[in-house]
Write a protein that binds this DNA or RNA. Structure first.
Lengths: 340, 340
DNA sequence: TTGTAGGCGTTATCAG
DNA sequence: CTGATAACGCCTACAA
């Protein structure tokens, strides 16, 4: 691999000049710039990243920490971050935190020790205090899908409450009045937000959730199945099941199938996340888009703007979810009209 | 951030000695090592990665190139690679190739220019020639799920032929004799392998595939649906549909549902990949495990063994798929016995 | 067993 | 506008 010295020698200039053209420093004469550029091409010279980092304190790399790489959410998130970063010649260094406080902590140190210019964090186990403390250190970071007031400028997240609101609202508008709700773990802020949003919509119609038609799950499929069984056994009537994510919705669908329930004729279902599962389920599941790609892009833009001084317009910190309608919700209104 | 100089000063030794204890060089006296270690702890010293790389020509980072980050396969792959690497304090740098020859090429240069010690490549558009040429350059690499004879030592891949064989064999053993087959694009080696394996199993039973019961798709869901429609319209009888991946199987399932076909009573289905979709489909889909995690781990081990000289046992280059049985295949034999 | 000193390939400050 | 030259922080012969 050729070095800046060889370029300077062949071009008949000093390494300082070569460095200037490499970094687009305006002061160099157009003629010498051309000449240097030619030699660079000719030698197929590529600057050494380590040397550059050592001298400039900039690595052009940003660390991404997510709980895990598989699953529909994090892949998309990383994908859109990398794509956005990459367009500006920045590198993505990745690590998984596995939802363990210790591993998340270590991963952050791991990434910092690699001199990442910035971090994008989707952490679950780390405390607010730790993150607030981290914000006082040297490495800037963005926090995905988590809101901490003291460092709100670092936070980019989905408006879960609005998401919960629109999913319930939609069902209400279709004429549904009797709901079952499968929640995520309520100590998690996203679950809480979704639940609050749902309740708010119900409140507007003076409806409250029957206790036997509420189930708190952990976002996995099996909970959805358990929940559905509980609902059916309760013998309390309902026409729609609202699920805090798609996986639990699928779990519930499976049980409904087993029990011979016709979907959406007998019972409607709506999920959250608009994950790939929603498209592939039977029937295809109506769901709430979680904006994962936009969030990733926004996070990358945050870094580009505030860390790399790229001229970008304002960062949106709160992303709004949208309803994606498929085939799992029936309109009671139409049917009613039709029948009568 | 403290440097090696500060450590050396406080410990009363030279930086060379500090460097030695950092790199576990045996020659240093146990007492001075302890002392240095203490000071390192005390100062919370972390070696500067850029400086280390510049001096040693080793970055401890390996580049991973996959077509995309989302989807069930690549997330798992990256996850298992990162986990394995991470356990040995190596970093994962990621890039997406987007199945475009140009982008794949640029991504490789991108990763090489970052001084990756090695690459793990899952590329689709790049030619064999390019990769063979690449193998002559400085940066070692592993090639995932692709076999090129000239650089076979670099290749780690699934035995697709065996996978095709066991999926057909299993159905045969359950008494099925009339098959429909939904293939992937046959110019791709994995599709070809799976197809060959299936044919081989059929051959053992003197069965050949009816042309109207063959469909070449592109691994996406819609193809599965189209294929299923074609099969049904052909009016040729079949009791089982063999699908070259899960997504197409799901597409076919959807159509089967629409047509009121009872699965698996009327028709059995089997997929390939054992992706998350297989668990979440209705009915849960029997499938062939594609060993993605083992492949990722093996690739990382390849790098650890041959690039970082970690003492590891032999690398398996060909991974064997396994049958994962769920609820989408019926046994004709039992039914026959039962009826008679 | 330890220390000295040159080198890794850039960037950036000062003179010129 | 260009050129010397001192960092940047670490590794590694070579010497002692």
């Amino acid at each position: 691999m050729s070095t800046i010295y060889e370029v300077s020698k062949l071009a008949g200039v000093s390494i300082a000049t070569v460095s200037r053209v490499l970094n687009n420093n305006k002061v160099v004469n157009e003629k010498t710039r051309r000449n240097v550029l030619d030699v660079i091409e000719q030698l197929n010279y590529r600057p050494n990243a380590s040397a550059k980092s050592l001298a400039s304190q900039i690595t052009d790399s940003v660390g991404i920490l997510v709980p895990e790489f598989h699953g529909p959410f994090y892949g998309c998130l990383m994908g859109s971050i990398e794509k956005t970063l990459r367009a500006k010649n920045k590198y993505a260094l990745v690590a998984s935190g596995q939802s363990s406080e210790e591993i998340e902590k270590k991963s952050i140190e791991f990434l910092i020790s690699r001199n990442c210019d910035a971090l994008v964090l989707h952490v679950e186990a780390l405390s607010d205090e730790y993150l607030i403390e981290l914000s006082k250190k040297n490495t800037p970071f963005v926090l995905i899908n988590r809101y901490i007031e003291e460092i709100s400028h670092h936070c980019i997240y989905l408006d879960n409450e609005h998401g919960g609101y629109i999913m319930a609202k939609y069902l209400l508008e279709q004429g549904h009045r009797n709901f079952a709700y499968i929640s995520g773990p309520l100590q998690k802020s996203d679950s809480k937000g979704r639940y609050l949003g749902v309740q708010q919509a119900l409140l507007e119609y003076d409806i409250s959730l029957n206790e036997s038609l509420f189930y708190q799950g952990n976002f996995h499929q099996e909970c959805g199945s358990k929940a559905m069984k509980k609902f059916i056994n309760s013998n309390v009537g309902f026409t729609a099941v609202i699920c805090a994510n798609d996986q639990m919705a699928i779990g519930a669908l499976l049980v409904a199938h087993e029990k011979g329930i016709d979907i959406p004729r007998d019972v409607s279902f709506i999920g959250f996340d608009n994950s790939i599962l929603a498209q592939y389920s039977y029937p295809e599941l109506s769901s709430i888009d979680n904006q994962v790609e936009n969030i990733g892009e926004m996070a990358a833009n945050w870094v580009l703007k505030y860390v790399y001084q790229e001229p970008l317009k304002d960062i949106e910190h709160i992303l709004k979810p949208r309803l994606i309608n498929r085939n799992s919700v029936s309109t009671l209104i139409e049917r009613f009209i039709y029948i009568s």
